[in-house]
Amino acid sequence: MPPLFAVCAADAGVTALLGSGPVRLFPFGDAPENVAKPYAVYQVLNGLPENYLDEPPDVDDWSIQIDIYANNIPDVKGVLNALRRALEPHCYIERLGGTSTEAATNLKTTNFDISWYYPTR
Results as ranks from 00 to 15, higher is better:
115 S>E: 05
20 S>I: 01
95 R>T: 05
53 L>C: 10
5 F>E: 07
95 R>S: 13
35 V>G: 01
52 Y>P: 05
5 F>G: 04
37 K>E: 15
8 C>L: 06
8 C>G: 01
120 T>S: 09
118 Y>A: 09
75 D>K: 07
54 D>P: 02
36 A>M: 06
77 K>I: 14
66 I>H: 02
29 G>S: 12
72 N>V: 08
111 N>G: 09
117 Y>E: 12
37 K>G: 06
39 Y>K: 05
42 Y>W: 15
11 D>R: 06
95 R>D: 13
79 V>L: 05
46 N>M: 10
103 A>T: 11
6 A>L: 15
3 P>C: 05
78 G>K: 09
87 L>H: 00
71 N>L: 06
93 I>C: 11
91 C>G: 11
80 L>C: 04
68 I>C: 00
115 S>K: 02
117 Y>S: 12
95 R>Q: 09
65 Q>N: 12
77 K>T: 11
34 N>E: 11
109 T>I: 04
35 V>W: 03
106 N>R: 15
105 T>G: 10
28 F>V: 03
100 S>D: 15
92 Y>P: 02
28 F>H: 14
57 P>S: 12
73 I>D: 13
28 F>P: 01
65 Q>T: 10
64 I>C: 00
93 I>D: 07
80 L>I: 02
46 N>E: 13
14 V>A: 01
102 E>M: 14
97 G>A: 04
70 A>W: 03
3 P>F: 04
46 N>V: 03
83 L>P: 01
90 H>G: 07
92 Y>G: 02
20 S>T: 08
112 F>E: 01
30 D>V: 04
9 A>S: 11
91 C>R: 12
106 N>L: 12
81 N>V: 07
103 A>P: 06
110 T>V: 10
67 D>A: 08
111 N>D: 10
8 C>Q: 00
104 A>V: 04
7 V>M: 07
58 D>K: 15
109 T>Q: 14
58 D>S: 12
16 A>N: 07
85 R>Q: 11
50 E>P: 06
82 A>T: 01
93 I>W: 01
117 Y>L: 07
1 M>D: 09
16 A>V: 11
59 V>L: 11
17 L>V: 05
52 Y>W: 14
50 E>F: 09
92 Y>R: 15
114 I>S: 00
116 W>Y: 06
85 R>H: 02
6 A>V: 03
4 L>D: 00
45 L>P: 06
65 Q>V: 02
93 I>H: 06
69 Y>V: 10
19 G>P: 03
51 N>Y: 12
31 A>G: 06
